[in-house]
Design a binder for these strands. Sequence first.
DNA 1: ATAGGGTTAG
Length: 595
Amino acid sequence: MEKLKQYHSQIIRLGLSGDNDAMGRVIKFCAISTNGDLGYALKVFGSLPQPDTFIYNTIFRGYLQLQLPKECISLYVQMLHASVTPNKFTFPSVVKACTFDNVVELGQQVHAQIFKFGYQSDGFSQNSLIHMYVSFKSLEKARRVFDMMPQRDDVSWTILISGYSQSGFIDDARKLFDLMPEKNPASWNAMIAACVQSNRFHEAFLLFDQMRQTSQFKLDKFVAASMLSACTGLGALKQGEWIHDNIKKSGIEVDHKLATTIIDMYCKCGSIEKAFATFNQFPTKGISSWNCMIGGFAMHGKGEEAIELFKRMENESKVSPDYITFVNLISACAHSGLVQEGRHYFQHMVKVHNISPGMEHYGCMVDLLGRAGLLNEAMKLINEMPMDPDVSVMGAFVGACKIHGNIELGEKIGEKVIELDPHNSGRYVLLANIYATASKWEDVAKIRKLMNDRGVKKSRGFSLIETDGAVTEFIAGGRSHPDSEEIYAKVKEMLACIRSIGYVPEAESVVHDISEEEEMEKALFYHSEKLAIAFGLLKTKAGETLRITKNLRVCKDCHEASKLISKFFDREIIVRDRSRFHHFKHGVCSCNDYW
DNA sequence: ATAGGGTTAG
């Protein structure tokens, strides 16, 4: 900047202070370069008698870089008033400003102007319009621009594909993708990411395999990141490791984002050790990597390790803890029953880091106190919150009421939670289970009827297990697997074995229409988790760890059974449920039955 | 001189 100012005064001495070519260079440097100074650029701009289109365009870009779309738009208006004619470099910026500022009507006016000035066949302008309509959720308009383009390039296709996917129209995205004549890495990634975001992990893997068969295939960091997320979603550790290896081999530069994705994959695929090793390997860590690692320890019930890492972050890291850091840290305390520490960090966050507690922090604190049986303190905290508690905070409280058998409070708050979140089956199941614990069967039936009347379906549980690098999915009572006879026989054998060391079936969830005891047991025995474990025992060598991923929480019976299976068959079983990990080994679980 | 793709929580 200093050098530039010298250069600038030289130009002025040469009498070129009104020369657009010379001043354009000065403005470009100030407005665009990372160590520039837009304020200075604006001063120079103001001193020019007749700035040209290039100079306007440059300032637009400067404003956009600093995320000042409103200023960009008003300068554009000023430009038109000054009768400076826009060119094809003008519109991409202005359209982007409309996109960021979410000004639909103005965006359409700019669209009309693009037409008027004759840029209906300019790819850059048209692509920016597609992008704008996508972000306005006007998919039909985006599609119309796309269809009207004389020449579509891969950017046009890619924007529209990810546009469909972001609005939830995955099938439309897929149709478009299949129509695309020449796919490039960005468009492959748009489609793979679309699958990952809509939990279609298997489809993501199929696409990836197809992509690898194309001649110019080369793994880039975006595809790598999307595929890592697919592995994370399925709990597919082997595949995740494979991608990680390929990242190393391909010499892809691992930035903060990619590092975080890798760490998250290891955490959520059950290998906290590899996650931590990877974390420690990266010399420069972003805040997201720290947060992710602390969150990983939280998920695995390693509260002390999370606290250690947090202290390290405070001492040695150049990044300071943020809002999410404390969500993860307090949740780590909650999952490990570290009540005192949780209280401490809740205070510490405000006193030392000047972060005021938000909804999520209250949610974690209510969870922490409630699980520990301190229902009164949890309630007190809810009442003291500066904002109204949302469903998640109250849901955490109801969960605590269930664990500690507090029917009165659980009923009162549980009903409120249902009304606040009427489409979430989990809310109904929770209250029904509270009634069931108190043997209030009529109330259980009442809840079941309410769910039926409202058409709320209990989400179907499934379990995934990875064997030999392939992921198999099981649903409760499912028989679609070719070896299902063998698997069911194995379940029988498995349960007989653990009965001999004290297993007693215990139903918890009672929202099924199951009356007969025998029926109940059958349903319990064929929970997806037990099928997956049986399959794992069949398909893996003795002593090999079983890794299972579930979409719901582990039920009490499966939890008990898993402990005993780990003992009887001398296997480590690692189960990821929707909120945490359970490491079953030698008959005990890492969660200490505290989940 | 300009555009499109990946990450972190409960």
